[in-house]
Structure formats: C-alpha cells, structure tokens
C-alpha cells in the first residue's frame, strides 16, 4: 500500500508532539534554574536538587509513596492477573456480568468518587487511615489496568500449547506455571509497571485515604503548588519524570519482545 505523508500530516505531527512535550521540557529545564523565580532564567544550577534531598519531610513522603507503590502494584498484579484469567478462561461463571462491570468501572470512574467511597468504607469498618488504607485503595484502583493488559495477551496467544500440555497429562496448575505463565509474563510485568506508576502518581484517591501518619509525594507537591511555584517542586518533578520515562521505555521493550516471541511461536 502506498501511504505518503503530506505536508499537512507532518505539520500536525510536529505541532502535536511539540504541544505534548514542550511543557514537560520547560519544567525540566527550569529545574536547573539558579533563580528562585521559576519563570525567570538566572543561570544554570543544581542547587534545587540539593535542597530537595535536604528536605526531610519531602524525602519521607517520597519513601512512603515508593513503598505504597511497590506493595499495591504487587497486590494489583496478582489480583489483576487472576481476574484476567477468570475473564478469559472461565467462560460463564455465576455473576460474570457484575464481575466485568466491577473490573472496568474503576478505570473510568471519576477519582473523587472512588476516593470518597473507599474512605467512607474504611471509616465505617473503623480502619485507621494511613499507609494501609492508601495501599488497599491503590490496589483496587490499579488492578483493573493490570487485568486489561494481561487479558489482551491471554486472548491473543495460542491456546493449543495449553491443550497440548493437558493432553500430555499435566495437571492444570502445572500447565499454568510451566506453559501459560512464561507466555504471559511480559504482559504481567508491563501491568505491574503501569500499576506502579499510577500509584506513584495518584493525588485524589490518596488524599481521601491519607491519615496523619502517611503523606504521599503527590499530596505534598499539591499542597506546595497551591501556595505557588517552587523550584524544589520542579526538581522533584524532573526526577519523577526521569523514573517514569525509564519505566515506560522498559515496559515498551518488554512488550515488544513478547510480540516477537509470540510471532516466533506462531510459526
């Protein structure tokens, strides 16, 4: 097929990507600004990164955020993978419609509703707000994203491999661990990384469920941003952008390898 890019296509791509990337780029550039005024360039300096690492409460919040993200992403990966298996391998089980609804709803539900409803639940069962409530809330919020990623993989791969293993007498659990799991592993890792970044990023759900003991980085950043621009926030943002960029690049490479593998398997 002969597809050619017209001038209009190129222009819209250039403008589109400039619009997407310029604000982030400016933010990172101005994190190296020597001036305290965020929008006035006063020479190159890494002083805000130093100030950031000396800011005890910000570093503490970063550590809490990281622990919550690791824990909730791990839980979400297990639950999301189970849900994906249930949706692709279990046909019609009782309550399937409700189940699909519950899996997809948190993805489009406004975060204020998810956050408020979980908080009211924790208050009703008398669960102290803090580290664990945010972790449970993030697990619930992110597991559906894992489900969608793993489900897409489960639907495209060759079922005959599983059937062959079963025909040769492998019990279902063994078949799962030695055939299915290695095949869907890249999508599970990709799902984990998505859950992790979503948790690191979330402000609204965490704000509702945070307690006096646990403040996350987005909550900290938000309260500083409301007071005005701060070069320290720029520096913190630049570091977060760096982490996420690395995460997304590795997730992309992993999923690329998995499609290559599945193509190889198909031949």
């Amino acid at each position: 097929m002969n597809r050619r890019l017209s001038l209009f296509n190129v222009t819209s791509l250039v403008i589109g990507f400039a619009f997407l990337y310029l604000p982030i780029l400016l933010l990172v550039i101005y994190s190296f600004n020597a001036s305290r005024l965020v929008t006035v360039w006063g020479g190159f300096s890494t002083q805000w990164y130093g100030a950031l690492f000396r800011n005890q409460s910000l570093m503490e919040a970063a550590w809490v955020t990281l622990r919550i993200a690791l824990l909730s992403a791990t839980l979400a990966t297990v639950l999301g993978t189970l849900a994906a298996l249930a949706l692709t391998r279990y046909g019609r089980f009782p309550g399937r419609t409700l189940f699909t609804g519950m899996v997809y709803a948190p993805m489009v539900m406004p975060e204020v509703i998810t956050g408020l409803s979980l908080l009211l639940f924790f208050v009703a069962v008398d669960f102290d707000r803090g580290f664990w409530t945010i972790t449970l809330a993030h697990t619930t919020l992110t597991m559906c994203f894992v489900t969608v990623v793993v489900q897409a993989r489960l639907m495209t791969f060759d079922r005959s491999l599983e059937e062959a293993a079963m025909d040769l007498g492998a019990p279902p659990l063994r078949t799962f661990f030695s055939v299915t799991l290695p095949l869907i592993a890249p999508s599970i890792v990709a799902g984990f990384l998505l859950a992790f970044t979503l948790s690191m990023d979330d402000l609204v759900v965490a704000s509702f469920n945070a307690g006096p003991g646990a403040t996350t980085l987005p909550i900290k950043i938000y309260s500083q941003v409301r007071l005005g621009l701060s070069p320290e926030v720029n520096a913190a943002s630049a570091i977060l952008i760096g982490i996420v960029t690395l995460g997304v690049i590795s997730a992309t490479l992993l999923s690329k390898r998995s499609t290559l593998n599945s193509r190889r398997n198909a031949h």
């Binding site: 933010l27 965020v38 970044t197 990023d201 950043i221 926030v233 960029t245």
Partner: peptide, 24 residues
C-alpha cells in the same frame, strides 16, 4: 504510539503544574 503514551504516564499533577509557569 510510544511517544503519545509516554507523557500520559508522567504525573498528571506535574503536567498540570508545568502549565502554571507557562500561563502565568
């Protein structure tokens, strides 16, 4: 496609914050 997805995974809050400095 990866380039379109990338900013979407960067913090929502930070991307909105970036616009404050631009639109002030």
């Amino acid at each position: 496609v990866a380039l379109v997805i990338l900013p979407f995974w960067t913090s929502f809050l930070i991307r909105i914050y970036a616009w404050i400095a631009i639109l002030k």
